[in-house]
Design a protein around this nucleic acid. Sequence first.
DNA 1: GCATATAAGTCAACATGGCTGACATAAAAT
DNA 2: ATTTTATGTCAGCCATGTTGACTTATATGC
Lengths: 177, 177
Amino acid sequence: MADIKSGVNPLFLREEELRQGMELLFYAYRDFTDEADAMLVRYKLGRAHHRALYFVGRHPGISVSELLAILRITKQSLARVLNDLVRQGFITQTAGMSDRRRRHLELTPKGLDLERQITEKQRTRIARAYRQAGAEAVEGFRKVLLGIVNEHDRRLLQPPAAAERAGSTTLPTPKRP
Amino acid sequence: MADIKSGVNPLFLREEELRQGMELLFYAYRDFTDEADAMLVRYKLGRAHHRALYFVGRHPGISVSELLAILRITKQSLARVLNDLVRQGFITQTAGMSDRRRRHLELTPKGLDLERQITEKQRTRIARAYRQAGAEAVEGFRKVLLGIVNEHDRRLLQPPAAAERAGSTTLPTPKRP
DNA sequence: GCATATAAGTCAACATGGCTGACATAAAAT
DNA sequence: ATTTTATGTCAGCCATGTTGACTTATATGC
């Protein structure tokens, strides 16, 4: 009882700490996505469109099934937004050379532009948070988030050095400007 | 050009760093919520129910409008899930003493139980990530996430010491066990 | 070369959880 | 006494997730 009143009950502290982390994740994600959503309404697109756009931009030449694995949705759900984006000229699909069943997705210049616009404010927000928190905090941020991600994807997201060492079942990596 | 090839282009590094952060947030949130979702199907409840349940558990006696401010949804949307939870005996509503228009929400013992069960795996996951990353990393994780949250809520989420100093427009704080 | 497996696309129907708009009630505040 | 606030409710719409069934083209294994 003395423990509880003096606030040194280690079980309580642990629980409180964990809950704070869970909430922080909720609040940060909420505010982070709100920002893109506001931009999306102008283009009459939804959050699902943004996600597809983002990851295609991030992994140029990604296949449909790889994209599905990232988004963790069904192909029927993806088809809906992907077809929109292709029809509106934001994304191109080209059959693979070695395996012609595969469709490799890429952003058109127009798509690249759109992606940049939508993500713009999000980048600024993260940048500000990074700047205010400092390099060391950013390192911790990454470490913890990475620990929350499932083991499989965690490997793929590891620092590039480690990923290259591994011979890579990896996705196409972002191209430098 | 030499900059780009040698990978020391500071603009590229910055962009890459920010995108990594954005993605990490996506992946972590995806895997974090998946876990609760799996549990929720057993009780025939949705993610929206869980969010309400969680925050009522976290802020016993919270009013409807306060809850709305956290969730950032319309009262019509909230009503749907809240009514379910009340009807099924997970949450009680009691009129405020000073202001009898207000409905103060609380978890019943049954609701508390449910909340614990659903959040169980999420807590374990965060705990594991914290343990692996270390105390310093956790500090950084919090700092950065807090920086992503909007200013208003950031204040409310600050370390309790600071919040108490502030005379508090704050929500009811969690009770210790 | 034929059988089977894989990658992708499509149609249809359904569930969840957001949204807007309109309106009602009770209690507080002016 | 009037107005404002907190909450609740009805009705309908939309975005985005789901399952299930089926097609087409291509690759792969025997």
